[in-house]
């Protein structure tokens, strides 16, 4: 045992192998298809990006034309299944929110993502008239991010109770904020953690 303890140098050499060079991550490549060129032709710079990342296609659309693009996708391009609507919050950006539609076509077995960026407080048109499933999905986005969908007939919280303060999936909403608030009011202590 003591002999082993005396040779820290060799052990140290083994314990610190050179960190493997981190492989550069895959990068988005331009997505070219009749669908994209058609949309480009129609909306020009309104479609600011059309890319493929890890085999998945998405494009970024200006928020002013997003309702148009979505209904074209549904009515003309047969994206008849709205899989999901969600958002991502980037507080450092000027346009703080990404809003995403994940669409699927039963006819062509194709799945795409449509992304738009909006500022805090800016609302976007509801797609409930295009896909009725947007009803609850948009309510959840509102509940979690505070993004308003214009034209939604029932824009209220869905998962959280009506009196809830704030929108939890925003990045400035701390994970133990609610807990601390509760113990401060009800138990008179600083933190419950």
């Amino acid at each position: 045992m003591p002999d082993e303890a005396k040779s820290p140098t060799s052990a140290g050499e083994h314990a610190a192998p050179a960190a493997p060079a981190k492989p550069a991550g895959p990068v988005p490549t331009p997505w070219e298809s009749p669908l994209v060129s058609d949309l480009h032709k129609r909306y020009g710079s309104g479609i600011s990006e059309a890319s493929t990342y890890l085999g998945q296609n998405y494009f970024v659309v200006d928020s002013s034309i997003v309702a148009d693009v979505l209904s074209v996708l549904k009515d003309e391009k047969n994206f008849n299944y709205c899989v999901d609507i969600t958002a991502v919050h980037y507080p450092q950006r000027e346009k703080q929110f990404d809003v995403l539609w994940i669409l699927y076509s039963y006819d062509t077995n194709e799945r795409i993502r449509v992304k738009t960026m909006i500022a805090d407080g800016q609302s976007i048109p509801s797609s409930i008239n295009i896909w009725p499933t947007a009803n609850w999905l948009e309510r959840e986005v509102y509940d979690m991010f505070g993004i308003h969908f214009d034209g939604h007939p029932d824009m209220k919280r869905i998962l959280l109770p009506e009196g809830w303060k704030g929108h939890p999936l925003r990045k400035d909403y701390g994970i133990i904020q609610q807990d601390n608030e509760w113990v401060q009011i009800n138990l008179g202590i600083e933190s419950g953690q």
Partner: peptide
């Protein structure tokens, strides 16, 4: 530590399409 990017993957769960974005 995945590279910067986003992914959507879904499977057929017993109840229907279960997706992770």
């Amino acid at each position: 530590k995945p590279a910067v990017g986003e992914i959507y993957h879904s499977i057929e769960a017993p109840k229907g399409e279960l997706g992770y974005f």
